[in-house]
């Protein structure tokens, strides 16, 4: 870049402005860190869910269960995760010479934990006065249930990060991740050995998707 004023070339100036802004945004991104931390948190949740689940099976084979491990593990784990992501994100971005746009993401993530807790409490309050539904829930309710679950709110918060960073790659990845979580897409892997095992494949798949995403963004950054 030279130091000449170019009053007659507004197109070129604007093009340079856009190019510079794009380069800065690229240097602010540390997407792989966010996805790696979330993958670790997702994998670490599996034993908490497995051993923290209260299962009560009747002789008829019908079982009632409560995933208490999810309730006790995820809120503090996500809080720590978002704090760690914000810290590492800013540290890496600053080492590159810029500041990061990560704080609104971390705040959104923390606020979504409250949504998860509120939904959990609402269901508990409802079930205290009403019998559990005997018919399967409508599909829309199931999607909503998955959306406010920890794996869903991770995706919603990632959408915010993609918007903040104007990161199309992350947006596409997050839409794919949300499809896996909400539909859910289990690639045909299901386990019916026990109630605990029913939930295992989806958690492993969610974690793997995040891990692969982290690896993909890290590789893309190196190129």
């Amino acid at each position: 870049m030279t130091t000449d004023a170019v009053p007659g070339d507004p197109r070129r100036l604007l093009s340079e402005v856009h190019d510079l802004a794009h380069r800065v945004r690229r240097d602010q991104r540390v997407t792989w860190v966010a996805l790696l931390v979330l993958a670790v948190v997702t994998f670490a949740a599996i034993p908490f869910d497995w051993f923290g689940m209260q299962v009560d099976c009747a002789p008829t084979g019908e079982c009632e269960f409560s995933r208490d491990g999810v309730l006790y593990y995820w809120p503090p784990a996500l809080l720590v995760a978002y704090a760690a992501i914000a810290y590492v994100y800013r540290r890496i971005a600053r080492s590159r010479g810029v500041d990061a746009r990560v704080l609104p993401y971390a705040i959104t993530g923390a606020a979504l934990i409250l949504v998860f807790l509120a939904a959990w409490i609402a269901v508990r309050v409802y079930l205290a006065d009403n019998p559990p539904p005997t018919e399967p829930l409508p599909y829309g309710w199931l999607v909503l249930d998955r959306l406010v679950a920890p794996w869903g709110i991770i995706g919603v918060a990632l959408l915010v990060l993609a918007r903040l960073e104007r990161n199309t790659g992350l947006l596409l990845f997050t839409l794919g991740y949300l499809a896996v979580v909400l539909v859910p897409i289990d690639f045909g892997w299901q386990a019916h050995q026990s109630v605990q095992a029913e939930f295992l494949p989806q958690q492993v798949i969610n974690g793997l998707v995040l891990l692969l995403g982290a690896a993909g963004f890290a590789l893309a950054r190196r190129r």
Partner: peptide, 8 residues
């Protein structure tokens, strides 16, 4: 432009 995008 850079300072605006980077904030700092």
């Amino acid at each position: 432009t850079i300072a605006h995008e980077a904030r700092r």
